[in-house]
Amino acid sequence: MDVATLFDDVKRMNKRQFLYQVLSFGMIVSSALMIWKGLMVVTGSESPIVVVLSGSMEPAFHRGDLLFLTNYPEEPVRVGEIVVFKVDGRDIPIVHRVLKLHEKKNGTVKFLTKGDNNSVDDRGLYAPGQLWLTKSDVVGRARGFLPYVGMVTILMNEYPKFKYAVLACLGLYVLVHRE
């Protein structure tokens, strides 16, 4: 299939058919969005799937591995769990393990984290003056693991041109291809 025949298809379409293609493209985009938002509701986490971006949890998690998170408020944070948290002034959430935890009678909890592959705890990574994490910093708790799959998004983020090329190809294919 070369480019000329691709556009022949478009030429042979009438207005209604072209509109149908655009609509089906919209369906794909919106169902992807619905799945993502639906996962957010089911898991209680603002980002239910994250890609591991650093080697600080090696050898458990490598760059490009995929983690599935939940963040149910009734499930308490406990030591040894892998939490994904955000720190003020850093865009990228961090995936590390809870090392110490202190919970008061009224339920307020503060905890300290550390990466398995790091030799010191995370106080140096937190915002200046921040000594502990609290529940509000947590994006989710790691519950499931799938290796390598996130490599695609790492590639896309590191090579934006590759991302646009892939998106353009997919979009063109859906718009132009006739069922």
Partner: peptide, 20 residues
């Protein structure tokens, strides 16, 4: 396997303390 040895205890100020 990630093994961890936890000390768990109660103090007057904290209902639950867990230290690895």
């Amino acid at each position: 396997l990630f093994l961890y040895l936890t000390a768990e205890y109660e103090t007057p100020s904290n209902e639950l303390n867990q230290v690895v």
